[in-house]
Design a protein around this nucleic acid. Structure first.
Lengths: 207, 207, 207, 207
DNA sequence: GATGAATGAGCGTTCATTCAT
DNA sequence: AATGAATGAACGCTCATTCAT
């Protein structure tokens, strides 16, 4: 019985893989169900045994792809931390963001796909399988916790950081305007530090 | 005959209006030329007398809509300045952005449409008819000039500000996550001030 | 399943038949794919499962129809030869042409269709399935070989004969001008004999 | 009033000229009324003041173009006769055909257009304006008369000659198969002489 | 007479979806 | 479970024709 389930999972995976290739290259609107099935070496009708339509496939893909990015980023972060100690929580967060950006800059299609389809609502609740199903917010939270500092309106703060990163990287990586990624990064990270500082709760100085 | 030209302008305007309604509600990919023509109370063929295809309509709309937003913002800014003097160039820029945001928050469809279709390349070169065809960058530049301060990498700075505003407002206005617009604004404006400060060239303090 | 393949062949045959009817009556330019599908009692989309467009159907038809004519002519010739011996190679060729003409005169639509669409290039290379895939030229060649006579510029000779037959029969059979087929035939055959004689290599008379 | 009639004739002529250019290059089916009017520097609606549809234009063109060919051929023949005397009526006819062929070989579009659209019925009754509105048959007749010889079934004879010339030249000039025009001509003219001889009424030899 | 804006039927083609096998 | 033939609605687009100006 597990064998059959395996086969089904393989079919589903093949469809997802095929769809991802086509979506990122041609866009979802120019991709037909026929093409997805054909690319996955299946008959057209088989597609409908696994997905309602091509939009359900997209939703499934967005979640899994974003998942992978964060899993890889998390592993990369662990690796970096094993080698060197960062100076601060801010450094940690920027390290995390940096590894994410590097992944996206190596795969423009992935960036395009995620940026177009990943809303804040989905993102903030994204469960990361490898990390005990903690979601993205939890991960940021944990990093902030370790700093010993207090922040107000944490979700808004992370939201602003994430949107700033996403929006600027989208243009810079995909269109190379107005500057290159190397030029963007230092300014972007400086701005992130500023945002973090902006939301930091400073202890009243005791008289 | 001016009469005929008038009629043609009306037809074109009707098509643009119809297309705008449909694009904002259903997206351009799910809007057909038939629908646009029907909504504009015309025969399908008439559409093709005025536009090559639905994408030409979109491009025409993006430019004119963004144009309108900036013209209104500019007028609003002039009006506000006639009533009160801002304290600084930073205040001016934030005032400008604030009027833009208010417009967009009053018309979510407009926001959705512009956000989806206005790339940085188009935006930075957008000619504003009412302002002697100066483009958006020129307007920002002029505001910065008046401050008496010097900034490095102006284009990158403006790019980061615009993208931050656009991305955060898109989510907040359209999806009301993670906070409301009233909550976002003060933090957003504080971040903008920080970005401006970040790029400001500080004079070396003479010993 | 042979069953499914059978059904597909039937569908294709039905489309070919429908297209042939429409092409011969209205011409290919005035025949739409919709009509072909409708005439064949199919949905429009089904057409595109079997043919790229209406021109592919035409090419398929031209080949098969011309094929049929020549196969029937060949069989008819065999039959006639079993009953009576022709006096000469010229007689054989004229017999062959006569059986072709008779077929065409019995089916004006076939004549119209073949004449309009069968160029010399296609004709001269037409493979006749029943005759070991020999092409039309081979068949004429074989008949000429048997005569024991030698001909120069055989291809040009056959070309002139075929074109003369085709052009005159087209008018006579379809428009009955300037004479009837019965009146044309003897003169046409006499002309063919003359053309054959014209290209015959006569042995120099030894002194 | 003649002025107005002149203008009308000019418009009609412009439309015919435009249509001829388009028909010969793109074929009548791929030529739209819009294009004809546009090429003739007129509004689309004006076309319909002069012709019922594009097919009426074609019919008008076929007649006038064929007319021109024969007028030119006739003039050319007169000129040649003024320089040298032909040996016989057969020579005359072949000279006439030769001048026609040369015209057609210089203008493949004209050849394609005439061949496709000129049926024997139209041809045989074609009135040649310059030659006292005698038709093509009359011209051939006159040439044959001068020979002093008698021919039976003159119309059939001319029909066979014309069709043989037309069909062979069409392929040779437009497709260069199976031989070139230079190779075709001597054999074609020899065949024409044979056809003329075939229809010649030979006097019974008095005992 | 001349115009050209407007029409809308019709084209070729695609494709999501169904369903008999 | 898997197939893929069949469907037919809908698409983008063209164009002959009309008619108010």
């Amino acid at each position: 019985m597990g064998k059959i389930d395996d086969k089904k999972k393989q079919k589903k995976a093949a469809l997802l893989k095929a769809a991802y290739q086509l979506y990122t290259v041609k866009g979802i609107d120019n991709t037909s169900v026929s093409e997805i099935a054909e690319t996955a070496n299946m008959a057209k009708g088989t597609f409908y045994l696994y997905f309602k339509d091509k939009y359900e496939v997209r939703d499934s893909l967005v979640a899994s792809q974003a998942n992978m990015v964060f899993e890889r980023a998390s592993h990369q972060l662990d690796y970096l931390l094993s080698e060197q100690t960062p100076d601060s929580a801010e450094d940690l967060i920027i390290l995390l963001i940096d590894t994410v950006i590097d992944q996206l800059s190596n795969s423009p299609n992935l960036l395009r796909f995620i940026s177009k389809n990943l809303s804040w609502g989905v993102f903030s609740n994204l469960q990361i399988a490898d990390l005990d199903n903690r979601n993205c917010m939890d991960i940021f939270d944990a990093l902030l916790e370790e700093s010993g500092k207090e922040y107000r309106q944490k979700e808004l703060m992370i939201f602003m950081i994430v949107e700033l990163v996403n929006a600027t990287c989208y243009n810079v990586i995909l269109n190379h305007v107005p500057v290159g990624l190397d030029e963007l990064k230092p300014e972007l990270y400086e701005s992130i530090r500023n945002i973090l500082y902006q939301f930091e709760i400073k202890e009243a100085i005791p008289v």
